[in-house]
Design a protein around this nucleic acid. Sequence first.
DNA 1: GTCTATATCCTGATAGAC
DNA 2: GTCTATCAGGATATAGAC
Lengths: 236, 236
Amino acid sequence: MPPKSATNAERTRERILQATERLFLEHGFDGTSLRLITAAAGVNLGAVNYHFGSKDALFEAMLARRLDPLHAARLALLDEYQAAGQAPLSCEQLLAALFKPALALAREASPHCDFLRLLGRAYVDPSPVLRKLLAERYAPAIARFKDAFAEALPQLSRQELSWRLHFMMGALAYTLAGADAWRLIAAIQPEAERDDELLLRRLTPFLLAGLQAPAPLLDDESRTTPHRAASPEESR
Amino acid sequence: MPPKSATNAERTRERILQATERLFLEHGFDGTSLRLITAAAGVNLGAVNYHFGSKDALFEAMLARRLDPLHAARLALLDEYQAAGQAPLSCEQLLAALFKPALALAREASPHCDFLRLLGRAYVDPSPVLRKLLAERYAPAIARFKDAFAEALPQLSRQELSWRLHFMMGALAYTLAGADAWRLIAAIQPEAERDDELLLRRLTPFLLAGLQAPAPLLDDESRTTPHRAASPEESR
DNA sequence: GTCTATATCCTGATAGAC
DNA sequence: GTCTATCAGGATATAGAC
């Protein structure tokens, strides 16, 4: 691909993709109209459908361009760790296999793309289009990590583990997305700081402790009656 | 709602609010059109603007109806705990002051309203309308909890605490929202289980451990990732 | 007062001109 | 190949009938 073959068409495509990324971060899928995108990219409305076919396909292309390499790198690192020794991997290692590729790509892509925020937003966006895309595309990669976590945390029941990973995913996605409910609500977050590496280094001990916490004492996994006697209202 | 004194208008209002709650859970703010709402509620489009004035005002009314009592109850419980003893409250107590009113209202409102899911969705929705609403309306309540957490976790710097609360909020909101990225992606979540109380009892030890985890050593390399000696361009 | 009918703008998509 | 002009339907909001 010599500089001459970087045709006008390819540069148009690129401008559309970058505008889509940026606007998606701010407005989500439903809130980002094609007109907003084309206005920001300085291209015509029809160009989107010419290059990508539809809004759905455009967003799929935009996300796949960033997330495919991420998941490939994550699995490669997981493979590497698993090949290194026969003992089960630790939670630290698994978090590293999840975070390090993300950080590397974030550094690589920046400043064109706020990569980690894009990742978070994709995970919390309510649009069925994105949910379905993520579900279909990245299920195998995530399932491998789930199995690895199951080995790292054998004391947890499969159900308990599922929930813990869900909690972890929530803290991660919400934080990355900058879904700043608390920041807005209570000025909780210091103004300037937005250092991806620092953020993940703060997040890691929180998640590790949460994952390794003792399992809660539940009265019975198959509770038939939610006994109101032990209900929290009366106790103090 | 008394059966006879409920005028036609009031019942229309109520049907609109209930439809809005249900559809917002599924589609988010941007994805929930007034047409969708009026079709579900069996009322005319104009009725919404007559009763509420605008889409924004409708969603504000819908959320305030649920979240105002929640935050009032949370603050009342916090007051009660703080009045009981002069020692700083524990994290357990603070989580209880956050969770117990939510659970009580969830039980009360159900099955008309999936209260906790509504709460979570409101926190993760990308729409600026909702973000602004939550920020302006519930800032004082949340700030009080932040101060209380600062007393409960004196070993954490203010900045570290801010992040931990942010992480906690993420796990909470994401889980409550049923933002089922991982569920969809990896069938992580067991099918049937959706028991609010059980969910919060699983979440509590995770959050407690995370909040109380030792603070990361940010300038020391002793807590870097395992297995790999060389981290990619460690420049700080 | 309450809701029907309508107005006006915006959305995603396409057919066809350059 | 790329973009202009335009479509049919959906978006919110309002003017006016009962």
